[in-house]
Every structure is written in C-alpha cells, then in structure tokens.
C-alpha cells in the first residue's frame, strides 16, 4: 500500500493558494469598488444585481480626487474579472 503523498501535497498547496488568493483578490475588489462607500453609494447599490452596481456609484466622488477613485474602481473590476476567470476555470475543471 503506497500513499500518494505527492498528490495529497499538491491538493493541499493548490487549495491553500487558490482559496487565499481568490478571497484576497475578491476582497480587494470589494474594497476598491466600494471605497467611497458612504451612505449614498450604499443606498444606490442596494438595489440592482450584485455584480453590476459599481458604475452606478460613480456619481458622488466628484470633488475628491476623481482620478484616484477611478483608478481604484478600475482596479476593483480587474479583481472581479480575475475571480470570474477563476470561476470559469473551476467550471472547466468540473466539466473536464
């Protein structure tokens, strides 16, 4: 009887990296897109689908550093896109 430690170790490492990485990236996305998360953006975001409400919050941070906010939001959406890609890869793994 031989225990396949290599496969077990691979599973362990892959799981750890994937989970921590995905959760980290997704959280960055949440923080970045919800940055000026005052009451206005929270209220405007509470209606509407979970993934598509970021742009709707773009109206209020007009005065304070619009460029930085835009950069943060773009970065946030890049993070979400990366997570979506990971989900797609997951589905690919399930199918394949």
């Amino acid at each position: 009887m031989s225990i396949d430690w290599h496969a077990l170790g691979t599973v362990f490492v892959v799981t750890l990296v994937a989970t921590v990485g995905l959760v980290g990236v997704f959280t960055l996305g949440i923080v970045a897109t919800g940055r000026r998360g005052g009451s206005a953006s929270a209220a405007s975001a509470s209606s509407g689908s979970p993934a598509s409400s970021g742009p709707s919050a773009s109206s209020d941070p007009s005065g304070t550093g619009g460029g930085a906010a835009l950069l943060a939001r773009t970065g946030g959406w890049v993070c979400f896109a990366a997570c979506a890609a990971a989900v797609a890869y997951g589905i690919h793994l399930i199918v394949g």
Partner: peptide, 8 residues
C-alpha cells in the same frame, strides 16, 4: 464600510 462590502 460593512454595508457596502456585505453585498459583494
């Protein structure tokens, strides 16, 4: 802001 992030 927990309100804004919990939806995400």
């Amino acid at each position: 802001d927990p309100e804004a992030t919990s939806r995400g």
